[in-house]
């Protein structure tokens, strides 16, 4: 567990950014996107969702584009895209490290 949330993204944070990378969305659309994308493996609870959105908004990763009644639509900012890509690279590096380690075990 990182000391601060933004040192690395949790799974749900990463997927919410992924959803917003596609297009501006409201919270509930992001939840549906994540559920579809992960074939139901990851479901995001409402409290988790608004915590993520609040955190992202205060960090400047997302910004509000539209308010319709109680529904708010968000879009990802450049800073948010940067955070998403940095996390993606981190995950890829981890996966690559794990793959090379697998090869090492297979050769033994």
């Amino acid at each position: 567990m990182p000391k601060k949330a933004m040192e690395s993204l949790t799974e749900s944070m990463f997927y919410v950014l992924m959803a917003l990378m596609r297009r501006p969305m409201c919270g509930i659309e992001a939840v549906r996107f994540v559920s579809d994308k992960t074939a139901g493996r990851i479901s995001i609870g409402p409290a988790t969702l608004y915590t993520v959105l609040a955190k992202f908004e205060s960090e400047g990763y997302i910004e509000e584009t539209e308010v319709e009644g109680r529904k708010r639509t968000y879009r990802i900012t450049e800073k948010g895209r940067g955070a998403y890509r940095a996390e993606l690279r981190r995950l890829e590096t981890m996966a690559e490290d794990a793959r090379t380690e697998e090869l090492f075990y297979e050769k033994r």
């Binding site: 567990m1 409402p46 409290a47």
Partner: peptide, 22 residues
């Protein structure tokens, strides 16, 4: 305090790491 009667509703909090920040 939140409540649901829907057994299919996702948990309110699904990210323990985020909850631990609070």
């Amino acid at each position: 305090i939140f409540r649901t009667y829907d057994a299919a509703a996702p948990e309110l909090n699904t990210d323990a790491a985020l909850q631990s920040i609070a």
